[in-house]
Design a protein around this nucleic acid. Sequence first.
DNA 1: CATCTTTTTGGTAGTCACTGTCATTTACTA
DNA 2: TAGTAAATGACAGTGACTACCAAAAAGATG
Lengths: 232, 232
Amino acid sequence: MLSMGLREKKAQRNRDRIIAEAMALFGGSGIGYESTTMEVIAEAADISPSTLYRYFPTKDSIVLASLMRNTAKFSEVFAQRVKELPVERALAEAIFAVLAVEDAEPKHALMVRSILSQSPVARARLWDYLGELQFQLTRQLAECLGKKPDDLSINLTARIALEVLMAAADIWRDSKGKVSSRGTAAQFMRLLREGVVLFPDAGTEDVSKGAVLKKSTKKSPVRKIESRLRSR
Amino acid sequence: MLSMGLREKKAQRNRDRIIAEAMALFGGSGIGYESTTMEVIAEAADISPSTLYRYFPTKDSIVLASLMRNTAKFSEVFAQRVKELPVERALAEAIFAVLAVEDAEPKHALMVRSILSQSPVARARLWDYLGELQFQLTRQLAECLGKKPDDLSINLTARIALEVLMAAADIWRDSKGKVSSRGTAAQFMRLLREGVVLFPDAGTEDVSKGAVLKKSTKKSPVRKIESRLRSR
DNA sequence: CATCTTTTTGGTAGTCACTGTCATTTACTA
DNA sequence: TAGTAAATGACAGTGACTACCAAAAAGATG
């Protein structure tokens, strides 16, 4: 019961075969993402279109399956490293780990990026997936630091971490693999550490008037609560 | 010649009518995004499907047109304010300006967000649009600060600014409009200013070995702002 | 091994977003 | 008023994706 039966083995074989054939058709020496129909993919993988749709409900899910093999590293590495390292180090290493995978297989990574640039829907899926990653990371960070998941500083940190990851990958892709993505990420981290952030340290109050958080009441004369809330 | 002829007037009327009818059908008391076919929209707007496709090449472009009316404020306000204010203030005001528009029309904003959650393709378009915004902002910032557009600190600043904008909007949406988006944005800015950023100040080099960028040889002054690292 | 059940597969028909073409109508112009 | 260029609408596709049903394959049971 524990070992895979003939059924599951076949299914796994089919899944791998579909991804391989599809990616070959999509990028590189193939015919491009848009002009590769699901029928063609099915034919290349020796199954019927119906069955293909049963394995992958949408065309872009094939690309996503390929992409997730890389990004899955993130949460994994972070969860492991955070046990023995300070949070910020674990975060950095998780970022480097994902980028290292892409560095190791530049052809595959560039192909995925190429497909992404061809298909808005694929991009949408990636975005959704990043949202999930962010959600997950937020919870992990909250747990490590003993804060609530809806803490704004946690939220911001998770967002920025993933933004650094994406930014480094973007710049790497734009340079066609010439600049090291890990180097770029390291520079971003240094910039963050040094405080490049361009935000005013005063005067935001008048612009964001009425910016009271949560259930703070409608009592108008409590302007000072604002500063108390934000000074923490 | 300069004044709009009958043709352009009619076209404008059609555009407005299409957007209005479509948005009514998509959200709120309508029948939802997916189940509203282009044919139905055409019928509601009193034109043929062919003509509808001539006005809006894709279904999601109708949503996007509605969304852009808000986000267009960003570059506009920034370009204007940066003339008389320091860059960081102008950036903050641009963010607040966009959020203010959403605050002013919460029903419309929530509807757009609802549609976005229904359609991956619409999300993809929004993402693409954000990419353009980021590109534009990067150039604007570079010009203001006298740096090259491919400067990493510029790149990072633009990304973070838009991330703050999106984050505030996200949180506002998740709270169904209860928390002030401008207040949240202000808090994010404060956190950034105080240096919440969780990144190590040493040891990144060994992980990102070989990560040498153009002029990265320049060793920067080590400012340890990190003393305030969130260790609570 | 034969039989029964469950899962997997393939085929068929349909919906809908979107494209291309072409004749017709409509707004502008000489 | 006639002529031109643009806008429109009808029609016929293509391709992603869905729903449905019958046949084949895998597993369980006698």
